[in-house]
Computed example of a mutant assay.
Amino acid sequence: MSDANKFHEMLSDIMEVARVQGNQLTMEDVKSLFGDMNLTDGQYDHIYAYLAANKIKIKGYVDSASLYTEAVNQEKLKEEHLDKEDSEQKASAHVQDKDTLQEEDSVYLKMYLEDLEGIKDCTLEEELTLINHIITGDFSAKQRYIEGNLRNVIKIAKEYRNKGVTLEDLIQEGNIALMNALEHLQEFEKETIREQIIQYIRNFIEAVINEEKESSSFGNSIVDRTDFLNNAAKELAEDLGRNADIHELAVYTKLSEREIKDILSMSGDAVKVSVHHHRKDGKSEGI
């Protein structure tokens, strides 16, 4: 497993731990999970930022994003005020998020969407301002950008619904992609940087779906081959009056003995075979 995949898996694991602990973690919890990856303090700060943006409280972690947001709003966004009509449109959009949930969606996901109601989305002007600050290494700008784009991730994730991965997992993977995209801003074209962040998220989600499809296909293939071998073993057992051995199964099924052993190793006790090789003279010899 690559370091990147390992990091993604650990980030998903820490999210699960947080859920169990009421969306609260300590800095020690995080460091204990990622301890063997030798991360720098700056990298841990990125993890704390991601967790904080996802409404997970980190005990001992100072959240500077709200102070940064206030300063940005005062300096850059003084003239931006939503009128009553705009507010109603935003409220309607939040309700629509809830209405599109399905019965199989988890309680956690429903609570997550409710929590987002208290977070203000980034405006286009604020996003561009934040991006400029992130490029210069401003950590709190990164946290605010993640926080202000969580709903955008949901919208993207919904486009990939019913493709073999739960909406909850799609959103979580999309959030991880959002955080990773901000680590690669220097590689993006400045004129279309916002669009490239969105495309990065889409690519990440599509890769997760494709990986799940490949995994499912492999699993189904094993099930089919196990069923085939099991049926063959039963037919041979009826003809021979005993369980067939691997050599006899290989001759009967036209599969190699190596293939049969591989299937048996993954099927456990699903297929009954003899542990002895039976010779033509009726005697048997151990395998």
Rank of each mutant, 00 (worst) to 15 (best):
Ala71Asn: 14
Leu170Trp: 05
Gly174Ala: 08
Gln172Lys: 13
Gly137Tyr: 00
Met179Tyr: 00
Asp86Val: 04
Met37Asn: 05
Ser274Ala: 13
Gly282Asn: 09
Glu235Gln: 13
Val223Tyr: 00
His247Lys: 14
Lys57Phe: 00
Lys254Thr: 15
Lys6Pro: 01
Tyr44Leu: 10
Ala91His: 01
Glu212Ile: 00
Met1Trp: 09
Val223Ser: 09
Val72Trp: 00
Gly42Asp: 13
Leu130Pro: 15
Ala207His: 11
Ile205Met: 11
Glu238Met: 08
Tyr200Trp: 04
Val20Thr: 14
Gly268Met: 03
Lys261Trp: 03
Ser216Arg: 15
Gly118Met: 08
Ala233Val: 05
Asn231Asp: 14
Arg194Ala: 14
Ile146Gln: 10
Asp224His: 13
Arg225Thr: 12
Met37Val: 00
Glu103Arg: 04
Ala244Thr: 08
Val275Gln: 11
Asp245Phe: 03
Lys120Tyr: 00
Leu167Val: 11
Ser12Tyr: 02
Thr192Ile: 14
Lys76Glu: 15
Asp41Cys: 03
Asn5His: 12
His8Pro: 02
Asp36Gly: 03
Leu185Glu: 04
Arg19Pro: 01
Thr69Ile: 12
Leu255Pro: 03
Ile171Leu: 12
Ala270Val: 04
Gln96Gly: 05
Ile263Asp: 08
Glu259His: 02
Glu187Ile: 08
Gly174Ile: 06
Asp63Ser: 07
Phe188Thr: 02
Leu130Lys: 10
Ile260Asp: 05
Ala237Val: 01
Tyr50Thr: 07
Leu240Asn: 07
Gln143Lys: 09
Arg242Trp: 02
Lys120Asn: 11
Ala250Ile: 03
Val95Arg: 14
Ala181Leu: 10
His94Gln: 13
Thr26Lys: 00
